[in-house]
């Protein structure tokens, strides 16, 4: 416990951590200020007009769907054109969301409509924060001799490293939760006072909570990943270099090569796909290869899906594997 308390003080005193927190507050303040400045409370006539436009839009969607169904019944048996293949795609009932009044209120901030995208922005920042702080926390200490100093006091390598990782994850999680609450509460107040709160029912909070929960897991995984790579490479820059190299060599270069060789479902081989799938619950990717077998025989969307379950498995396996490896290497490493 003493070790964790000491590590907590060291972590919070790091200039880099303080700088990142200032950046977080600054980005948060700029976003909130611009939102507040660009929004106004809608008048009654603006609301009535927007509601009418939403009704019209929904009616238009229904009409298009009915037209599709009618054409489908009239077409000849030999016509296999894709337009008629799946009218269900046009069915308003099957849409993720239908037009609502808030869609037709320009210059009016709607908390219910924009909370999720705002939360994604916060999660992205916190993932970056966690990764960089995780990498610099151990990387700088290894490089400067801070770890050696600590080991002279507590010559238990695994305990010291575990205390560092535990302190890092606990601190990042606490900061992330605090930032999330303050962030969402601020925009909720803006929605109430200078915009529209929107429809804040159980579904909304459930969906937002799910995104937030998955986001927090991603923040923790990113922190552990930065920590593990910097431990393995002995430097903060090892983690930054590894991520940059991965992004350039595999996510860009590898993707190009996979396209050239017509690999099947190339997105399954990209870490970014799993991050997206985990965060959003599922991700759909297009692969024309999937339609090769069914060419000319009927409708083929060419889409395949990655869901959050396998995505979590991949992310945890990668982070967990590297973390275990970092502990194993650190246990035997010569600290010179």
């Amino acid at each position: 416990m003493n070790l964790v308390r000491a590590e907590l003080e060291r972590l919070s005193a790091r200039r880099f951590v303080q700088l990142m927190v200032v950046l977080l507050v600054f980005a948060f303040a700029v976003t909130a200020a611009t939102t507040l400045a660009g929004s106004h409370k809608p008048t009654a006539s603006e609301l009535n007009s927007a509601r009418q436009q939403a009704v019209d839009a929904r009616r238009s969607m229904e009409t298009t769907h009915q037209e599709c169904l009618a054409r489908l019944q009239e077409r000849s048996p030999t016509d296999t054109s894709e337009y008629f293949a799946d009218c269900a795609d046009l069915d308003p009932v099957r849409q993720e969301r239908l037009p609502i009044a808030a869609d037709f209120l320009p210059g009016v901030f709607s908390f219910a409509e924009q909370a999720e995208s705002l939360l994604y922005f916060l999660i992205a920042f916190l993932v970056l924060f966690g990764f960089l702080v995780g990498a610099s926390y151990i990387g700088a200490d290894l490089n400067s001799g801070g770890v050696v100093n600590l080991l002279l006091w507590r010559p238990r390598r695994l305990t010291v490293l575990a205390a560092k990782l535990g302190t890092l994850l606990g601190s990042v999680l606490a900061l992330s939760l605090l930032a999330s609450v303050v962030y969402l509460a601020t925009f909720w107040v803006i929605g109430q006072s200078a915009g529209l709160p929107g429809r804040l029912d159980g579904d909304f909070w459930g969906s937002l909570g799910a995104v937030h929960g998955r986001g927090m897991v991603l923040v923790l995984l990113a922190s552990a990943l930065g920590f593990a790579i910097a431990t393995l490479g002995r430097h903060t820059s090892a983690a930054l270099g590894a991520v940059a190299a991965y992004a350039v060599v595999w996510e860009l270069g590898g993707r190009l090569v996979l396209q050239i060789i017509d690999a099947r479902r190339p997105d399954r081989l990209m870490l970014s796909s799993y991050i997206g799938a985990w965060l959003s619950g599922e991700s759909r990717f297009f692969d024309p290869q999937l339609c090769a077998a069914t060419a000319g025989t009927g409708y083929c969307s060419g889409l395949y899906t990655l869901t959050w379950g396998p995505a979590l498995l991949v992310l945890v396996a990668l982070t967990g594997g590297l973390t275990v490896l970092a502990f194993a290497v650190f246990r035997r490493r010569d600290l010179i």
Partner: peptide, 23 residues
């Protein structure tokens, strides 16, 4: 062992207090 490095931003007192706490 050799010249140990300490956090430049910490005071001498705080540096030792942290070590004392850890140990």
């Amino acid at each position: 062992v050799e010249s140990p490095q300490f956090f430049g931003n910490f005071t001498g007192h705080r540096t030792l207090r942290l070590l004392a706490r850890a140990g």
